[in-house]
């Protein structure tokens, strides 16, 4: 069996008397889309926060490409090539698309102008354009337009493009279709498939069962702070998965 790209074993996190993560395991294999499903309060978000450095677990271990991984902040995770698309989107509405794609990771000019810390705007715009084209984001015509002029789906596309651009190991998406209409959801699912085609594994946290069944290779069912099991969308139905989430049925081992 191939080695997981990102793995965790026995993660625990307590907030006073509340146990957010109760011995959770996690594996993400190369080139797959892994959906994480679970009820509100099941601890999906806490698990994701642990994997992206936004939360430091009390116990448990994590590995990236088989090597022990310790994260102290979201910046740490980014440095390791783990990129997250947050539900809150994390784009700056008043700045243009190219600036947003490179925000915090700008390209400087060479030579003396670089010493003066001047930006290489043509290079950033060119790469931004290439990235959007590569992901088939054709609806965005002018990358110098501000993000606030974009629709919700286009903004999501910008956030996804940024993650795909800098995520060298893993792209994690937290409810990327939650606020979107049917067509925009389709578009984001296409983006996820394209990222997988590039060989980059994706973790998709979602409540949207049709979306999960459309793109996921495996479904990680999270329940009561831990992994209840992993199922294949080819072998179970949507209503089975809902039963696993609520605990009405046990997840087959």
């Amino acid at each position: 069996m191939t080695e997981p790209v990102l793995a965790a074993k026995g993660l625990r996190k307590r907030y006073g008397r509340v146990t957010a993560i109760d011995g959770a395991d996690f594996e993400l294999y190369p080139g797959e889309v892994l959906a994480i499903v679970g009820d509100n309060g099941a601890g999906k978000s806490s698990l994701i926060k642990a994997l992206t450095g936004a939360l430091i677990p009390d116990a448990g271990e994590m590995w990236l490409d088989g090597k022990p991984l310790r994260l102290h902040s979201p910046i740490d995770a980014r440095r390791y090539g783990i990129e997250t698309v947050y539900q809150s989107l994390a784009v700056s509405p008043a700045l243009d698309i190219a600036t947003n794609l490179f925000l915090g990771r700008e390209i400087r000019r060479g030579g003396f102008l670089g010493f003066l810390r001047l930006l290489d705007r043509p290079a950033m715009r060119k790469q931004a354009r290439e990235q959007l084209d590569a992901l088939g984001i054709a609806t965005v015509q002018d990358i110098t337009q501000t993000v606030e002029t974009l629709s919700g789906g286009q903004r999501q596309a910008v956030a996804v493009a940024r993650a795909a651009m800098f995520g060298s190991k893993v792209v994690i998406m937290d409810e990327p279709t939650a606020a979107l209409g049917v067509r925009e959801t389709e578009h984001v699912l296409d983006l996820i498939k394209r990222i997988r085609e590039r060989g980059l594994p994706v973790v998709l946290i979602s409540h949207d069962m049709p979306a999960v069944f459309e793109v996921a290779d495996r479904i990680h069912v999270h329940r009561l702070g831990k992994r209840a099991g992993v199922v294949s969308p080819a072998e179970v139905s949507m209503s089975d998965v809902v039963s696993f989430i609520t605990g009405a049925k046990a997840v087959p081992v």
Binding site: R78, S92, R117
Partner: peptide
């Protein structure tokens, strides 16, 4: 024309988004 300048705008525009951008 500098990253610093872009960061000034980003911080004023949406602090949380700026923080998550590193």
């Amino acid at each position: 024309r500098t990253a610093w300048g872009r960061h000034v705008y980003a911080v004023g525009d949406d602090k949380e988004a700026a923080r998550l951008s590193g």
